[in-house]
Simulated scan of single mutants.
Amino acid sequence: MAVELDPVAAPGGETVYVDRDRAERGAKGPFYVAYATPDGTERWGFFCANCESADNAMDTMGRIECNVCGNIRKPDEWDAAHE
């Protein structure tokens, strides 16, 4: 069964395709996986469900932060030396 991906506007005027069945937990709401292609073959990044924005960033430790509302996902591995 094919997964339905929702087209949304991303920064720079491009369209990305959001899979609302695949999510990472955020402090204010989930971050959904977003794809660059409508068939879901090329991963693009994440979409913040709290403010409905694709304007976010991920660091090398896996922390995701929305640049619009401040929603944040903690890193996969945390080490006090990185703070």
Rank of each mutant, 00 (worst) to 15 (best):
M1Y: 01
A2R: 15
V3Y: 01
V3S: 07
V3M: 06
V3L: 07
V3F: 01
E4G: 00
E4K: 07
L5C: 00
L5V: 04
L5D: 00
D6E: 15
D6T: 15
D6P: 02
P7Q: 10
P7M: 05
V8S: 07
A9E: 14
A10Y: 12
A10M: 06
A10Q: 09
P11W: 09
P11D: 10
G12S: 10
G12K: 05
G13D: 11
G13K: 10
G13Q: 11
E14Q: 14
E14H: 04
V16E: 04
V16K: 01
V16R: 03
Y17E: 02
V18K: 06
D21S: 15
D21N: 13
R22K: 14
R22N: 06
A23E: 10
A23M: 12
E24N: 11
E24H: 14
R25A: 13
G26M: 06
A27H: 11
K28N: 03
K28A: 08
K28G: 01
G29R: 04
P30F: 10
Y32A: 04
Y32E: 00
A34L: 03
A34E: 04
Y35A: 01
T37D: 04
P38E: 09
D39Y: 06
D39E: 10
D39F: 05
D39A: 06
D39Q: 07
G40N: 03
E42S: 11
E42L: 08
R43Y: 09
R43T: 15
R43C: 02
W44C: 01
W44Q: 10
W44E: 12
G45M: 04
G45P: 15
G45F: 00
G45A: 05
F46N: 05
F47Y: 15
F47D: 02
C48F: 01
A49Q: 13
N50Y: 05
N50R: 11
C51M: 08
C51F: 08
C51R: 07
E52Q: 14
A54K: 03
A54Y: 04
D55C: 11
D55I: 10
A57F: 07
A57R: 12
M58Y: 02
D59I: 09
T60D: 13
T60Y: 09
M61A: 11
M61N: 15
M61K: 14
G62I: 01
G62N: 13
R63H: 05
R63N: 05
R63P: 02
I64T: 05
I64V: 13
E65I: 12
E65K: 09
E65A: 09
C66G: 07
N67V: 00
N67Q: 14
V68K: 13
V68N: 09
C69Y: 01
C69W: 01
C69R: 07
C69Q: 05
C69H: 08
G70A: 08
N71G: 08
N71T: 02
I72Y: 08
I72F: 06
I72W: 06
K74R: 15
K74Q: 11
K74I: 03
P75Q: 07
P75H: 06
P75A: 08
P75F: 02
E77A: 13
E77T: 15
E77P: 00
E77L: 14
E77S: 08
W78F: 15
W78C: 03
W78H: 10
W78V: 13
W78T: 13
D79C: 10
A80T: 08
A80H: 11
A81E: 12
H82F: 12
H82L: 12
E83T: 05
E83A: 14
E83Q: 12
